[in-house]
Design a protein around this nucleic acid. Sequence first.
DNA 1: CCTACCGGGCTCTGCCATGACG
DNA 2: CGTCATGGCAGAGCCCGGTAGG
Length: 370
Amino acid sequence: MPLLLLKVQGRPIHLGWLVTLRSLPAFFTRLSSDDSLARPENECLLRNLRMLGVDLKMARKRQPGVLRKSVTNEHGLVRFLQDKGASQAMIASIISRFPRSITRTEDHLKERWSLWRSIFQSDSEIISILHRSPESFFRSSDNDNLEMNIVFLSSIGIEAKDLHRLLTTAPRTFSNSVELNRQMVEFLEDVCISLGGAHPNQFAKAIISRNAYILIRSTKRVKANIEFLQVSLKLSDSELLNLLQGHGAEILDLSHENLKRNFSTLQDKLLMLGCGENDTRRLILTYSQVLFVSPARISNKLDCLTKAGIQVKQILHKPKVLDFSVENLRWRLNELSKIDYDFGKSGINILDTSRKRFEAKLEKLSACEE
DNA sequence: CCTACCGGGCTCTGCCATGACG
DNA sequence: CGTCATGGCAGAGCCCGGTAGG
């Protein structure tokens, strides 16, 4: 309501009149939500950022408030990152994607960097992660929490090698509050105990080292997935325990809905191919990654293999063939059909090899034929 | 030498919602 | 209210090669 405002501004404000005004709160709401009166962007800052090649549109969309700040440290940040070996383009991209990075002080940056360096051997490793995911490095301003995370994860027996992998592959883990990480670890330990496991800390450690992403999942999701697996596969406690510390650790990543969907479509598909519930169960126990494959994909792969004359039983016995892309499988099947390869007689192991080995084998087989 | 078995490598961010705080 | 920090979500596989054991 600019008109009203002008009038008010143009006269000496009469306190008694203002206070008795019934719409006072609404007036102030309008006052602050009026675009023309909102705190303006810092023109000087905008100029600086433009000079640096920052994508202002992107920055504005992500964290508009930063552009209105009067005190920022973009020059310090640029100097700092340049010193660590980042290119201009990298820095511009980092700021564009996570503008708040320019609010971090020199001291803060130094301290955070040295904490990361306690895990990484080189600056360039860190730079590449920063470039990949600026948010992972800059989202939290709490260096003490970062340090406590490192201490905590070490204390539960995560070794340097795994710590390194964790920070490389799931850097967000280290921006979680140490409490959140502790909750997940304790949750995993509780799962182990409730399943009758004897070594809860070993169990939690095993899952974390098998699945670097586990600590950036919610316990809600992980819990739902574990319960679903036990019920739908009718697993005994010890079977579930083994699955989880084995390949099953990765299934916990799936969104719960996707896990359910992938499971039921896989089961339906196998049913149509003449398999029973037990076959599904065994397949998942021996090759749980199958649950990662989307319905259309898995269906495609199975069709592709069975149409080439391969028995479903053979696939269930050698599920790793499902690891390969449909394109790859198709190509291999085609090559094999050219030399009249008989899967019934020779088995399907030939499909489960690296391309190099497959080609070598293929060459030998064709030579034999001639 | 060959194969079957197995483990490991890559890499997963960018967005939104919410609560704390001033 | 604006801003920051933090939690949580959606999206959805493929490939290589060491090596033990024949």
